[in-house]
């Protein structure tokens, strides 16, 4: 019976990858279709400067190529299989998809990497994507021009400029409290780095520093478990 369930889950996961790969490929082709169609129709009347375009592509690749690797490696374990395919096509991962998936798991007390976890993360990320699409559609039609003067005005700007720290605090605090022995030294280490090296320096290599920080933290966690300084496993 257990073997049968495992097989069903394996089939489901394999199908998720198959569908995920195929649907991502179509999305990539459609995204490239936009400049292709515009170039085909309007390119006759406009001289396209290929060398400058290549230069822009190289500059952007140098910046975002490495960031992409860091983001894929860092974020995908938290998003589930289907959630990862969806998130990396719909975007806004750090401020929307990651919090949506993580919070849904925590609220329902479901572990990552389980069958239930896969269902929960997919539903949470899918719902988040649909809402963003609808808000942006309305934003493009009329809501943007209507709302932007209000949310950037002196009264509400302090609140809306700080959505990301507010959601980071609300997401992180419950984890930090449940895992004080690991989180307190890690937060202090992160703060010390920012205080000693300065915000500008840290921002200049944000993704690289983030990867280094996560790797070193993980090695330290391993060490404190191996030596028995911390005995209980991290709680989600």
């Amino acid at each position: 019976m257990k073997k049968e369930a495992a097989n069903t889950q394996e089939t489901y996961t394999n199908n998720t990858h198959r569908i995920g790969k195929f649907s991502t490929l179509i999305a990539i082709l459609l995204i490239l279709m936009v400049p292709a169609v515009i170039t085909m129709i309007y390119g006759k009347d406009v001289k396209i400067q290929i060398s400058n375009t290549i230069s822009a592509i190289i500059t952007l690749s140098a910046i975002y190529g490495v960031v992409s690797v860091v983001e894929v490696v860092s974020f995908s374990p938290f998003l589930g299989s289907a959630g990862t395919y969806l998130s990396f096509i719909t975007g806004n991962i750090m401020n929307m998809k990651l919090p949506a998936a993580t919070n849904a798991l925590r609220v329902n007390n479901v572990e990552r990497g389980t069958d239930e976890g896969e269902v929960i993360t997919t539903l949470a990320i899918g719902a988040s994507s649909v809402v963003t699409t609808v808000v942006l559609f309305l934003g493009m039609l009329f809501l943007g021009r209507l709302l932007v003067p209000v949310i950037t005005g002196p009264a509400l700007a302090p609140a809306f400029n700080n959505v990301t720290p507010a959601l980071t605090g609300a997401l992180a605090a419950p984890y930090f409290i449940k895992n004080k022995k690991l989180s307190i030294p890690t937060v202090i280490a992160g703060c010390l780095l920012y205080l000693i090296l300065g915000y500008d320096f840290m921002s200049s290599g944000y993704s690289f520093f983030m990867l280094g920080f996560i790797m070193i933290s993980f090695l330290c966690y391993l060490l404190v478990y191996k030596t028995g300084i911390v005995k209980e496993k991290p709680k989600h």
Binding site: S74, A172, F176, S183, Y194, F218
Partner: peptide, 16 residues
């Protein structure tokens, strides 16, 4: 440790 530990490290990094 890899999953939950990394999440704590990542959140610490975002908060710093």
């Amino acid at each position: 440790l890899l999953i939950d530990g990394i999440f704590i490290a990542m959140m610490s990094w975002f908060c710093a």
